[in-house]
Each structure stands twice: as C-alpha cells, then as structure tokens.
C-alpha cells in the first residue's frame, strides 16, 4: 500500500463542508476509541466509528462516503452518550449519511431502501403502515427473497395475534403529510441550485 499523501489527499473543503453542515467539530476528537468501544454494531462496520472520526479529521471524503459504517449505524446514541469530548457522534454519522445521499454514494443499498420505503409509506398513508411498507420495500427495490422470507417468519405469528392489518386506517392528515414531503423536495431542489 502506498503512503497516504496527506498533502495531496486531505480534502479540506470536505472538512469545512462537514463542519458547516453539522455544526460539529471533528478536531474535538482525541481518538480515545470510546465510541468504538461501546458501539453495538462495530463488528459489522468496515471502519469502526473512531476510525470514521479519524478519516473525517484527515478529510478522507471518498473513503467515508463509500463506507458501510455510516449506513449501519442505528443511532442508538451510545457513542454520543459516552463521548468524553462531548461530540454528538451519532449526529456526525447522520450528517455523513446526508452528504452520501446527496452524492449518490450508498454502500448499503438495502438499508437506504428500507428507510426510503418507510418514508414512502408515511407519505402515502401518513402513518407507518407495516404491510404497505414491506410491499413497497419488496416491489420498488426488488428485495423479493429476503422480504418474502421475512413475511413468512413474521406473518403467521402476527396474523394470529391480530397484530398486522392489511388495510391502512383512515386518515385526516393525509394531504398535509404528503405536502410536507412535496415541499421538502422543492426545498432540496432550490438548495441544490444554489
């Protein structure tokens, strides 16, 4: 492996962009590793959280945005709770996801698809409607197999206990919730133009 040429490869603009967008300051991190130590998901991460913080300090934009770690973080807030430097680490991961979305860099498509399906379901039905959400997840993103398996696992147990309904409830707020999403898209487009 070649030496990482920090003179050339430190993306200072990315560091500044991140600071501005998040309001967090990566320089506060002294690399104690407490976030990694407490992270329940770290075994599944390609880079442990403290390494994401380090990559951020050194402006390694591509590595971060292409990492699985930022998508596998479940915002359990353990890192934020225990960080001795008072960095809101979960928030850092959140903002990195936002940037990755914008730049179309999503290393964990399944996770992103799930979030999108959830929100689509909220947009359509104004409340999270599980059957609808799972159907969107299956149809839109083609995760037929895993989702069908999921349905087989959960379905019977839930149905016999009256825990799943095949029809969304009636709603009053429907239109307004859909409008939130619509206005948000518009806001994002205007931001992108700027």
């Amino acid at each position: 492996m070649d030496a990482l040429n920090l003179t050339e490869k430190t993306d200072w603009t990315f560091i500044e962009q991140f600071k501005k967008e998040s309001g967090d300051n990566p320089s506060l991190c002294y690399q104690c590793g407490n976030c990694t130590a407490g992270c329940p998901y770290t075994h599944y991460f390609d880079y442990p959280v403290s390494m994401i913080m380090r990559l951020l300090q050194t402006g390694q934009k591509e590595t971060i945005l292409n990492s699985k770690a930022i998508w596998l973080c479940a915002t359990c807030e353990t890192c934020t709770t225990r960080c001795p430097c008072e960095i809101d680490v979960a928030h850092v991961m959140d903002v990195l996801r936002h940037i990755a979305r914008r730049e179309n860099k999503v290393a964990e498509k399944g996770v992103k698809s799930f979030y999108d399906s959830f929100l689509k379901s909220v947009k359509l039905f104004s409340r999270m409607y599980e059957v609808g959400m799972i159907m969107i997840y299956m149809l839109r993103y083609g995760y037929m197999l895993s989702a069908a398996k999921l349905g087989m696992d959960i379905g019977p147990k839930f149905l016999t206990r009256g825990k799943l309904s095949f029809f969304p409830h009636e709603l009053m707020g429907n239109a307004e919730v859909a409008r939130i999403f619509k206005k948000y898209r518009k806001m994002e487009k205007e931001r992108a133009k700027k």
């Binding site: 690399q31 104690c32 590793g33 990694t36 442990p48 390494m51």
Partner: peptide, 8 residues
C-alpha cells in the same frame, strides 16, 4: 476499544 487494532 483497541484503537491500534481498530476493534472493540
């Protein structure tokens, strides 16, 4: 954490 190993 063992930050030198990069692991929990």
């Amino acid at each position: 954490a063992d930050t030198l190993l990069g692991t929990q």
